[in-house]
Every structure is written in C-alpha cells, then in structure tokens.
Amino acid sequence: MPRPRLTGLGAGLLSTVAMVVAGGLAWLLPAGAQTVVFGVLFLPVCALTGLWVRPADLAMGPVVVPPAYAIGVLPVAEGGGGFTGQVMGLVTTLALNAGWLYGGTLVAGVIVTVRKVRLMGAARRKGRAERAAGRTRGAVGAPGGQRRAAVEPRPVQADAGQRAPRSHAAR
C-alpha cells in the first residue's frame, strides 16, 4: 500500500474528489440503495484520509471528511426543482444519513489519534535514548579523560533597571 503524505488541503481534495466519484456511482443505482452504497464507500475514503495525511496535518484528517461527504452526496440527494429544493434535499439526506457521516468521521478520528499517539511515543523513546547516551558519556566526555569545565550560571536580574553584579572571572 503506498504511503503518500498529503497536506490538509491535499487530503481534503482527495476525499472530496473520491466522494464526488462515489456519489456519481451511487446515482446510477436504484433510489433505495443510493445512500447506503454512498455511505459504505465513504468509510474507506475516511480511513485512507486518516492514513495518508502527513504527521504535521494530522488534525485535518477528521475535519476534511464531513465537507467531502456533503459535497459528494449532492447527486444522491433527492430535491425538488430549483435551488431551494436542492438545498432541502441535501439537508434532508444529510439528516437521514448522519450515521454514515458520524461513523466515517469517527473512523478518520480514531486512525489519526492512534497515529498521533504512536508519534508521541516514538519521540519520547528517542528523547530517552538521547538522554541515556548523554549519561553514559558522563563528565569524562572530553578527549584525554579531562573533565568538562563547570559553567557558572548567569545571575538573574531582579529588576529591569538594576544590573546584575559581574563575576570575578569576567573582569
């Protein structure tokens, strides 16, 4: 399975195009099966969106799929003539098939959450490994077994108008 890394916008475009194609395919079916087939096709699109969005845009995975559903369901929505009839048909279809919409969004959300938890765990393990590598070197990290010089911390300034006293080494 390919591992593309889509931006949030790319994931939104991919899911929208896929749902428009799914809506066109569902439109060819009998009236009773259209919304069910459309909803079933929505679930894998949500899963792929959650899997393919890049790590920096993980929060966008569950956000982009509901608008893709709403745009893709337009061919399946049965509305009357005119703009108002189409809007009423869209709203009715969205209300009657909210389970598919919530389910798909939940699928994308769970996949994105699992990916984020795994990324955080990997970052934590990497930080622990780096700290452990730093401890094994210890204070004798310089060549020839010499100890590193202790760095004297800079004094904190108490007031913006007062200067901190200078150390004897700085004079």
Rank of each mutant, 00 (worst) to 15 (best):
M1C: 10
P2F: 03
R5A: 14
L6I: 02
L6A: 07
L6N: 06
G8F: 03
L9H: 07
A11E: 07
L14K: 02
T16Q: 03
V20L: 14
V20H: 01
G24D: 05
L25W: 12
W27P: 00
L28M: 15
P30M: 01
Q34T: 00
T35A: 15
V36D: 14
V36T: 13
V37W: 14
F38P: 05
F38L: 10
G39D: 08
L41R: 04
F42Q: 04
F42K: 02
V45C: 03
V45K: 00
A47M: 04
A47T: 05
A47R: 08
P55N: 12
A56K: 09
L58I: 13
L58D: 13
A59P: 02
A59K: 09
M60T: 05
M60Y: 12
P62L: 06
V64H: 02
V64A: 04
P66H: 04
P67R: 00
P67L: 01
I71V: 15
I71S: 03
I71M: 08
V73Q: 10
V73F: 00
L74N: 00
V76T: 11
V76G: 06
A77T: 06
G79L: 02
G80H: 09
G81W: 05
G81Y: 07
G82M: 08
V87C: 05
V87Y: 08
T93H: 03
L96W: 10
G99C: 01
W100H: 04
W100T: 07
Y102P: 00
Y102L: 15
G104L: 01
L106K: 05
L106T: 10
V107E: 06
V110C: 02
V110L: 15
T113Q: 11
K116Y: 09
K116Q: 14
V117Q: 11
R118G: 04
G121A: 11
G121N: 13
G121R: 10
A123R: 12
R124W: 03
R124L: 11
R125C: 03
R125H: 09
R125M: 11
R128F: 07
A129G: 09
A129H: 11
R131P: 01
R131Q: 12
A132C: 04
G134Q: 11
R135Y: 10
T136I: 11
T136P: 01
T136W: 08
T136S: 13
R137F: 11
G138L: 06
V140P: 00
A142N: 11
G144T: 09
R147S: 11
R147E: 12
R147A: 14
R148L: 09
R148Y: 12
R148H: 10
A149R: 12
A150V: 14
E152T: 14
P153V: 07
R154C: 03
R154L: 14
V156R: 14
V156A: 13
A158F: 08
D159K: 04
R163T: 12
A164V: 15
P165T: 05
H168V: 09
A169L: 15
R171S: 08
